[in-house]
Write a protein that binds this DNA or RNA. Structure first.
Lengths: 114, 114
DNA sequence: ACTTTGATGAACCATGTGGTTCACTATTGC
DNA sequence: GCAATAGTGAACCACATGGTTCATCAAAGT
């Protein structure tokens, strides 16, 4: 599972969020930090598999980890999440503008149709 | 490029958003509806390739299309976008709660450390 | 010192993804 | 009716992804 050739940080953030297992990890971390093993168990996958997911989340900027002794503590990180949120908000503005445009169009039609 | 075995609508929405070409499509559609060909040209890919992207966006609920004569008009659709936004918001609440928790923890430590 | 435990790395596998080309269908314009 | 145009479908390609197993390393526990 490699660094991948993503151009924008948004690529990594959205890609990371597109996997249900990874969203589950984030949800679990919402209840507090956890080690890789503690994340793997409820997810029902191997520790090796979980380590990969954690790495994906980490270089998407959604999770921060720290190696403590032989365990690795994972906790939420939120920088990139804000980026994703910002992009979606921007897109919603576009969408609303579109709707307004349509609205104006229909209003115009109504005016003309009598 | 197939339907893919995504479990949740969120999977499809986030996966669709993780591709820069597809985010570009959404941005372009923010300026008004466009045909597949009109989307393909600025993106610098073939019409066939663009048709696939449009299909991905469509069954992610982010775009709505309508075949008019021999062209296919694409416009923004936003149902799933709200889902994505809602999920991110929820996650941000978790994150803030975490921060509050840490804050409380440090405050507690400070109280104990005298 | 030895054993257990948590995590990592490498190799592997099946399937998905983003793109292409080529052949085809269906609409439009003359 | 015929030629040009817009899009679709199938086959293909290189590479990414999500998962596994097995071997290894490093920290703890006894």
């Amino acid at each position: 599972m490699n660094h991948m050739v993503h151009q924008s940080p948004l690529d990594e953030a959205f890609a990371a969020l597109s996997d249900p297992t990874r969203r589950g990890i984030l949800t679990q971390l919402g209840d507090g930090p956890a080690t890789v093993g503690e994340l793997a168990q409820p997810a029902g996958i191997t520790v090796t598999g979980m380590a990969k997911h954690v790495r994906v989340l980490e270089n998407a900027g959604l999770v921060v980890t720290e190696k403590i002794g032989r365990t690795r503590q994972c906790r939420l990180g939120a920088e990139r999440l804000d980026d994703a949120m910002a992009w979606i908000s921007f897109y919603q503005r576009l969408w609303e503008r579109r709707l307004d445009g349509l609205d104006a169009y229909f209003t115009l039609q109504k005016g003309h149709e009598k």
